[in-house]
Design a protein around this nucleic acid. Sequence first.
DNA 1: GTAATCCCTACTAAAAAAGTCGGGATTAAG
DNA 2: CTTAATCCCGACTTTTTTAGTAGGGATTAC
Lengths: 158, 158
Amino acid sequence: MILSTRGRYGVRAAFELALQYGKGPIPLKSVAERQNLSDPYLEQLMAVLRKDGLVSSVRGAQGGYMLSRHPSKISVGDILRSLEGPLAPAECVLDDQDKECIKADYCVTRILWEKIRDSINNVIDSISLQDMVDDYERIAKDFTKEERENHGKAKNLC
Amino acid sequence: MILSTRGRYGVRAAFELALQYGKGPIPLKSVAERQNLSDPYLEQLMAVLRKDGLVSSVRGAQGGYMLSRHPSKISVGDILRSLEGPLAPAECVLDDQDKECIKADYCVTRILWEKIRDSINNVIDSISLQDMVDDYERIAKDFTKEERENHGKAKNLC
DNA sequence: GTAATCCCTACTAAAAAAGTCGGGATTAAG
DNA sequence: CTTAATCCCGACTTTTTTAGTAGGGATTAC
């Protein structure tokens, strides 16, 4: 059970925008390059994030994308749910009436899925993009600029 | 990000075996019927659980499957990992050297995936099949036998 | 005017998920 | 010893999802 590339790339792109927060719109091409993602694919993902109000865009030359609010006000959960849909281990705990189990009231499996769902959501909602930036600044200072930047060329990336 | 049917059906089948623990081998056909699962498909899943030592089987007439140890000694995590593989949100935190991120030492995304992974594993390892049985016995007594058993006919099941 | 951007829809190839199918081996019971 | 109930095993198929690609239109700074 691995997240799809949508969620994973989306978090990486959002993190990149968080690093540049306050510097005006960042062209998608530069985000894609720094995170080693295909730009037409990333474009699709940004469209979703924009529709969900997480990023805003400026068209035309010198345009680009930026987070629509401060990185401390956007959680990793916001990004993941936007791109992956609700994060739950089973349909019956999606809070969608139609998908509810017919034996909901005495279904112990459901109780299990709820616990897993809540645990996932608790973690991802408790971590903001700013937290990631803080982690980065704490850790990355021990590495050289080349070490930090040559990852654009690599294949094995989180 | 929803678990596949493998993990979900597997947990339901294991729970069923936990309910019948101590009563000798239970034919797969009966498990499949009570949980409304296709038997050839469930058969595949049981083969995996058997290879992982979670259930044991008795061949021939009057044969069937049973849990290979007490339900309190089998966690939901054991079942899920057996059928789904390791539960992690990204490859780089699977503990597989090959899949490790090349910037592992200063990768903040990785830190995030680790937190999600650990949170999921903590929950599923802390819940045993016996816990589910206990939940069931506590809850199900408020429902009639028909209410509990007619779920075999339904489509919407956890 | 032009180049750099975002915007949108449609298409496609590859992989994974979810089963199905057919037959072989084993064993309890009559 | 025969039969029916089981588990066992590998191959196959269908459907859905994933992970992109492609191509062109609209907007805007310079």
